Amino acid sequence: MQLADDDKTPLERYLGSTIRELRQRHGLTIAQVSAQAGISRGMLSKIENAQTSTGLDVLNRIAQALGVSLSALFRNFDVPQGDAQLVKKGAGMEVVRKGTRRGHTYHLLAYDQGPRKLFEPFLITMDDASERFPVFEHPGTEFIHMLKGVIEYRHGQQTYILHPGDTLTFQGDIPHGPERLIKTPIQFLSIFVYPQTTPD
């Protein structure tokens, strides 16, 4: 059935472009795919251009001619648009936090999380073993994952020796912070997860 532009559905447009992309990716011509699928070249061209609708049997034969499953033709249909934020190595914004001095840097790895802050991921580097650190307190939960070096980290009355690969998770409103830098340089990932209030 020939479709007017107004009658074309998002699914027909998606299937047409997907079939064309797969055909071109495999270096196949319309003649080759149509012959394998047992349909005319004109029909395949119309399907690729969303100018006609077709049944599952024909789509299955086209999929086999392309060397994929029928489900592969629909795999990415109606998938939400991606909106990931990529921060390349070394491109995190350096931020200043209370008590940070020489040899102690925070790089913020994600920004702009809407009107309410959900989390903050930092890459923290320390290389001055003589530095003394303040005590930190903040709402929510903090997660630390050690990447390099060895540190003694305090949370409340307890201290923990952290080596590369170790993780520490704790409530941020209890006083915490580095107690002693045992082996520098030290680098760890610190993620603050903030509590979310539900609207009344």
Rank of each mutant, 00 (worst) to 15 (best):
T125C: 03
L70M: 14
M146G: 05
D78V: 06
H145C: 08
F77E: 10
G149Y: 04
F133G: 02
L118R: 10
G140A: 12
E120R: 01
E137Q: 12
L70Q: 06
T125D: 06
K117E: 09
I151P: 01
G82D: 15
L73R: 08
T141S: 14
D112L: 07
L109Q: 02
G82T: 10
Q113V: 00
S130V: 01
L118S: 07
L123Q: 04
H107G: 00
G90A: 13
Q81D: 12
R75G: 06
R75S: 14
K148F: 06
G82P: 14
F122L: 06
I151C: 11
G90C: 13
D127N: 05
E142F: 11
F74P: 05
E137N: 05
S69W: 13
P139Y: 06
L86V: 12
P121L: 07
P134E: 03
L123W: 08
E152T: 00
P80R: 10
E131H: 14
L118V: 00
A91R: 13
I144L: 15
V150C: 12
V68G: 05
I124N: 03
M93F: 13
H138V: 02
I144W: 06
R132W: 01
R116P: 00
L123K: 02
F119R: 01
F74I: 00
Y106P: 00
N76L: 15
Q81E: 13
A91Q: 14
N76D: 15
K89L: 15
M146W: 13
M146P: 03
Q81T: 11
Y111N: 04
F77V: 00
L118G: 04
D83W: 11
E152D: 14
S130R: 03
P121C: 06
D127Y: 06
H107W: 05
K117S: 09
K89I: 14
T100R: 07
E120P: 01
F143W: 10
P134V: 03
I151W: 12
L108C: 08
E120L: 04
R101G: 03
A91D: 12
R97T: 04
P115R: 01
A110V: 04
F133V: 00
N76T: 09
F74C: 09
H145N: 03
A72K: 10
D128S: 09
T105N: 12
T105I: 10
D127T: 01
D78Q: 10
L109E: 02
E120F: 01
V135W: 11
I124H: 02
R75Q: 14
Y111G: 04
E94W: 05
A84S: 13
D128A: 13
S71G: 05
A110Q: 00
L70N: 03
T105D: 12
Y111D: 06
A84P: 02
H138W: 08
D78N: 09
H107M: 08
L73W: 12
H107E: 11
K98V: 02
I144C: 05
S71F: 06
P115Q: 02
S71D: 04
P139C: 05
I144E: 04
G140W: 13
F143G: 02
A84C: 11
F77Q: 07
T125P: 01
Y111H: 08
V135A: 10
F143E: 04
L147W: 07
L70T: 07
V79K: 15
V150F: 11
V96Y: 10
V150D: 11
L70W: 06
P121F: 14
M146C: 11
G90I: 07
P121M: 08
Q113W: 05
V68P: 06
D112S: 09
Y111A: 09
